[in-house]
Amino acid sequence: MKSDFGQRGWQLASFVFFFALWELAGRWPVSPAFPPFSQTAVGLWEMILDGTLGKAYLITAQPLLLGVALCAVAGIAFGIGMGLSRAIEWLSLPVFIILQAAPMAAIIPLLTYMYGIGLTSKVLAVIMLAAPVIVMNSYKGIRNTPPSLLQMCRSFQGTRVQEVLKVVLPHAAALIFTGLRLGLAMGFIGIVIAELLITPTGIGDLISYHSSVADYPKMFATIASIVAVAAISLHLLQRLERRLFP
């Protein structure tokens, strides 16, 4: 209705504003390496058409999805464990708090040393960056169960097992999903860093190739595409989240 047009209208204006700014900035003779929006768009289109972009994503997607999937399974399980057991919480919580604040990128060169420059290193890079947020969110989801619901379950003589299965876990599902979404965001960050620091394949390869031949529109376009892919997939996940957990 009226507000819907208003919001769509503003989103459109936002895009136009940004791209117009980009176009202007590109035309300003500050640096030959900064192409205007129009040239970047053309470069992007060309890469889509000739399939190079698609192929690159196919390669880059592997360690990303593999890493996030592994993280999801292990991370959620561990987070739940932390939430349910005070002993595990005591031992692991300080570690994960540190890991969340720590610049994990510093360890990546070490990964390269140990596991080479192949898929393993990249998957591990993704896991290292995504795991803390997935674990912490699962943990918080378990810990934040409203005491009132727990008391209610006990008042009807529910056992601890029933309590966990019927009250704690369903309640934690919302935060667990949020953790997965944030984990994917960190996964994107991880795979980009891995591409840049370990060895460029897929998207990273495109970026460094076009940089080396000074084809700046295509280099920019690749970078813009990964930012866009990340933004779109996270946005879709957020909408799914709102649907599942109103």
């Binding site: 409203p146 009132s148 619901l149 008391q151 209610m152 006990r154 008042s155 009807f156 003589q157 019927k166 009250v167 369903p170 309640h171 599902a173």
Partner: peptide, 19 residues
């Protein structure tokens, strides 16, 4: 000592399962 089947509780904040 603990809850029992002969007693049922009605909570001030309802304590309903939201899902």
């Amino acid at each position: 000592d603990g809850p029992g089947p002969e007693r049922a509780f009605v909570f001030q904040d309802f304590a309903l399962l939201p899902w």
